[in-house]
Every structure is written in structure tokens, then in C-alpha cells.
Design a protein around this nucleic acid. Structure first.
Lengths: 188, 188, 188, 188
DNA sequence: CTCTAAACGAGACGGTACGTCGAGTCTTCTA
DNA sequence: TAGAAGACTCGACGTACCGTCTCGTTTAGAG
């Protein structure tokens, strides 16, 4: 059923993604779908994340700036060049009016991906490549979050140059020796 | 009609925002609504932006960091504490499956607000408070875009501390004397 | 729409008579059907009675016994040999669990048909072929009602001989000179 | 299981009488129900007739007219004042679209009750209180059948006066000395 | 006193139809 | 003559029962 749902989602987008469509395509009955997924949003989300269980891993060369840059370039490439971008945007869009889906989106999509970045940043912080007073969650939003924002607004270019500038801007500010001293980042 | 549409939007959110509802509330007929707005998304958008024609202005003290920080704090307060946050998120969400609405969102909502920030940043750049090789669009996304991202994911806190860290992280990286020299930002 | 409904009713019977079927066959939408007919029973009934607006007329030779017998023979023939019998039985059957339909059945089907018989009997009563103390409604039920009963139970033969015996049994009892004197029939 | 089915039937009527309901109420599984009863109609019928295994007996005073009248008055009282009337009507109604149920209805409900009346009439015929050429099945339909018809049409009053007039009308016509001579009734 | 075979409960499932909602189109009638 | 009123088709919604189909799990009768 998830396979059929994913196929429909890829083919039609969220606009044409209906419970009836999934039922017809999968051979399942609507009742069965509703038994397992409360809303079509949750179904779409699960179907999609089941099909792309692949989460971009972060290289680890010991140079956090290079690692993050490499990851971001792959990330923006994925969003720009494959169906993943459109689907992700539509899922996050649909979640805005479906709290249950929003929760599922956080749990299934955002959390695992965000933790990849946070983990790498934390390791760098422990290696003193990033100041200890820096809130890594904020850094994450200024890197990956900014990409997602461009994806959703569909307006400014989402390319390697953008990725490069994101990293440069933020990395210079969070490296030891630069910037003001802040109170230490809150514990997460 | 826009007033009625806005009232419905504020009261019900995008989920309960229907052409029929607007027609009933406004006394207009559906045909008339369709004559002027191609989709309900565009109508919602126009209704909302007509009601909040107020765009946050940017203070100008000559200190770009202080100005941006002040603006961001007001911005996150607005998104967090008023209905504006939810409505904006839902509008941008709905735009993901409605290209016409997406274009309108850019034109009506994003463009004017973004240009406020860009203009202030450009002035600072001309005052040499920001390096000339910095792409201000990118900076904008790392400040306001990151806020929008937190709004849409509804997960991490959207508060003054966040605003402060956004500014600190990025400003340190883009000030003269910090960071590598990059090729000059592309012309916009 | 009534034509399509009638066609479906004749073809499938009440068991296969569905709102969706009528919608598909007529080209109307279900909403429209529901707007005009509260339940499928009422729709079936109206469709049927529109198609058989022909009500068996009663001959008038002046001889009530001959007239009634002729009418009854035609009536049982209709019920036995045409689709009318099955449809009528199913409609009356369905009305047992649908009060609105039951009311409509009385109004649309029973009333006009019953009044044909009552009118003939009353004329005969005025001609003194039937005693004035006889309740003609009761007589009607012992003639046409008994036929309907056989139709619904589908068991005993529904033929001319039956019609003949119905008439004979009851006519002998209600003619002047026969039977006890009763209090006059209640006014209707 | 029959007890639960009967309870559901009495409480909800045929409209709300479902296999799932009976299963839930009885603790039996649907499969078990289907193993024993082909359709819900047959189940309802059997459940009902098991609960009202009491069949109205016919008094025998030697005066057929008095006996029949007494029986009819009790019968109409039962149909009018107890749940039996509604349930019986709904069962016969449902049988119109369920041949198997119709057959069961004849066997379980109609046959035993009809034979009570026929037996009494036959005894009277043998006592020469009823002419030998009278078809007693027809008489039965003009008495009990007419009552059932009024029950199903739910329109004309179903009371003692009606019962009285039914008997009077028909008895006068079938007594020796009244009426024409007919060919003898067919053997049953 | 076991062991096995039938019967049974539980309930998931595909399917049909239900009755409702809103989208978007199309008259028709009024101001 | 523009626009309100509202009927209409269409597609999807979420639900109810249907009748079928596994699954364990009793529960007896046979060994």
C-alpha cells in the first residue's frame, strides 16, 4: 500500500493524492487505509519516507567546514534536481493545516536529518573548531533551514554557490577567535 | 469581499477557507469571486495581505547589527504571538500545490518584506559595515528565512534568543576583517 | 431522472435500486437526487408511479357485482402477469421501514386506486344494491386488500377464480335482504 | 444467538438489524451467523418466531362466527398494541426482496397461523355452518389477510369494529341458504 | 488422560453504497 | 447589464455493512 501511495504521490503530487486514488492503485479498500493512517497527509508522508529511507550521510574528514559544505551541496542538488524537492515541499506545505501530519513530519523526516548535521557540528565543537557558546540548532537552521526556505519560496536559486555562501557566512562567525563571546548555548 | 475573506481566513484557517464560505459571508456570488480570483489560494492571499498591509519597517540607527536584531525580534514576536504566524505558514503551505498562488505569494508577501531587509543590508554594505563580497540575499535567508523555517516546522523555539543568535552568528562572518575573501556577490 | 429511476427499478428491483445507480443512469449527480427525494424509497415510488400513471378504471354497467368482478380480474392479471406485481410488492415492502415512503405510497399509490373502488361501491349503495349499513372501506379491503395480501405472501394463487370467489363471498353478505342489520357505517 | 437477534430486532427494527449488530450483541462471530442463516432476513425471522412461539389459538364454542370474531379481535389487538405488528410488517416487507426469507416466512409464520383458521373453518363446514362450495382459503384471506393488509398500509383503523365488520360481511355470504351455488372449492 | 479435529471468537480485508462537501460552471431573474 | 441566487455535475470525502478470509483458541470425542 505504501508503494502504491508513493507512486501516486510522485506522479500526481499532493494535489492529486487522494485516498481513493491510493485505494484504487493499491487494491486496498479505503477502510483499510483509514484504519492505518488517520489522514491522507500522514499516509503520503509515510509512503514517501518509506521510499526514500536513504538519509544523506555526512562525510567526516575532520574539517567541519568542508564536510558541511559537501553535505549541503548534495542536499541542494537533491532538492533541485530530483522529485524529492517538490514532494518534500508539498508535504511540509500540507502539514501546515494538519497538526497530526506536522508531528509526523517532524518525527519521520526532520528529526533524523537534522540530527545528522547536529552530530557533526557537535563533534566539531568538541574538537574546538566551533566555539562552545554557539547554539548548534541555530546554526543548523541557518544552513539547512535556509535551503528549505528557498525550496519553499521557489524563487532564489538553490545551487552550489548558495550552499557555499551559506557555509562561509556562518562558519566565519562561529569559529574560535571570531565573534563576541556569548553565554553558552542551552543544553539540548 | 476581501474583508469577508480575511475574516473567514482568520477564523477558520486555510482548512476551512472555502469559496462558498467567502461567498456566503460576503454576500457575493461564487461567480463573482471566480471572476476576480482564479483560485481560493490567491483570494486568501490577497485578502490577508490587504488586511495586514502593514509591513514591519526597519529602524535605521546606522548600526546594521542593532537594526537587524531589532527587526528580527519584532518579526519573530509577530509570528509567535499573533495570528499572523499561523496564517502566513498556511498560506505558504498552500502555495506549494498552487503555482499561481506561489507566484502571488512571492509578489505580494515576500518581495516587499525581503526588500526591506536587503535595502538595509545594502546601505550597511555601502557604509562598509558588511564586506562587499557578501551576497545579501543569502544573508537575508539566513536571518528571516531561518525564522520562517522554524515557523513552518513549528518545533524549535521562535524567540528573542533565537533572533539574537541568528544575528550574531551571521554578522560575525560577514563583517570586514573576518572571513575569507570571496568573489563579489552577483548583481541583483 | 424519473425515467432512469424507473428503468433501473424495473430492471433490478428494489434490491439493486441505488441512488448511485440512478445517478449513473440518469446523468444526474447524487446531490441533485437527494435534493429532490429524501430517500431512495420515495424516489423509486415516484419514478414507478410516474411511469404507470395509468390507474385501472372501473366499468360502470349498473351491476356492481359484475363491475367489481371485472375490475378485480384485470387487477389480479396485472399483478400476476406484469412487472407491476413485483414492483408494487417491493415498494410496499420497502415502505415498512421507511415512514416517509409509507406516507408517499399511501398518497400516490393507494389513495387514487382505492377511491376508484370506493366510488363505485358508494354509487351502488346509493342505488340500494348494497346495504346502507355496510362500511365500504372494509369491503374494499376484503376485495383488493385480499389480492394485495396474496401478492405479498406470494403463495396462494392470484387468479380469476380467486377474484370470483372474493366477490361472491362478500357480495352475498352485503346485499339487501341478506345479513344482520348493523349500525350504519361511519362517515368517511 | 437468536435471543440477541430478537432483542436487536425489537429494539431497532429491521432497518437497524445488521449481522454485525447481532454478532456484537450475541458474542458470536459473523462467520458463525452465516453458517446457520443464509441472510439476515432469515435470521431475523427465526429469531422473532422463536421469541413469539405462541400462536393465537382459536376458541371452539361450536359457533364459527363467534369463534372467528373472538380470534380476529385478539389478532388485531396484537398487531395494533404490541411490537408484534411492526415487526411482522417489517419482516413481510423485507421478504419482498429476499426469496429465501419469503419462503421461510411462509413456512414459519404464515402456515401455522393460517392453518388455525382454516381448521376451524373446515370444522364449521363439516358441521354445515359454511356451505361446502366455499373455498376456505379465500375466506381466510378476506379475514386475516385483510387485517394484514391494513397493518401493512398503516392507514385505515385496525380495531374491533373492523374485525366485526370483516366477519359479518363474509359470514353472511358463505352461510347455507345465502348466496349462489358455486362449484365446490378445490381440494387443498 | 492425552491428542487431535472441528468449531468458534476475533477481526482484517475488498467491496458497494451511503450521505455530504466543496469546486467550478451555467442559467435565470432582478435592480 | 452586472451581479446575486442557486441549480447542476463532478470528484472526493469518511462511514456502514456486507460477505469472505485467515488466524489462534477452545472444546470434545477418540485413542
Amino acid at each position: 500500500m505504501l508503494a502504491a501511495a508513493d507512486e501516486l504521490l510522485q506522479r500526481e503530487g499532493m494535489a492529486g493524492f487522494t485516498m481513493e486514488g491510493v485505494a484504487a492503485l493499491s487494491g486496498a479498500s479505503k477502510v483499510t487505509l483509514y484504519k492505518w493512517w488517520a489522514t491522507k497527509g500522514v499516509l503520503a508522508l509515510e509512503a514517501y519516507s518509506a521510499s526514500v529511507n536513504h538519509i544523506l550521510s555526512m562525510p567526516d574528514t575532520g574539517d567541519i567546514e568542508a564536510d558541511v559544505l559537501a553535505h549541503l551541496k548534495t542536499f541542494v542538488g537533491l532538492l533541485r534536481d530530483t522529485a524529492a524537492g517538490k514532494v518534500t515541499a508539498e508535504l511540509l506545505g500540507a502539514a501546515q493545516t494538519d497538526p497530526e501530519m506536522a508531528a509526523a513530519f517532524r518525527r519521520i523526516y526532520l528529526e533524523p536529518r537534522r540530527s545528522i548535521g547536529i552530530r557533526a557540528l557537535r563533534a566539531a565543537q568538541e574538537r574546538r573548531q566551533i566555539r562552545v557558546d554557539i547554539d548548534l540548532e541555530v546554526v543548523s537552521d541557518q544552513l539547512w533551514g535556509a535551503c528549505m526556505y528557498r525550496l519553499l519560496t521557489g524563487w532564489q536559486p538553490l545551487d552550489d554557490a548558495f550552499a557555499g555562501r551559506l557555509v562561509t557566512n556562518v562558519m566565519c562567525g562561529i569559529k574560535p577567535g571570531n565573534g563576541r563571546t556569548l553565554p553558552p548555548a542551552p543544553e539540548r
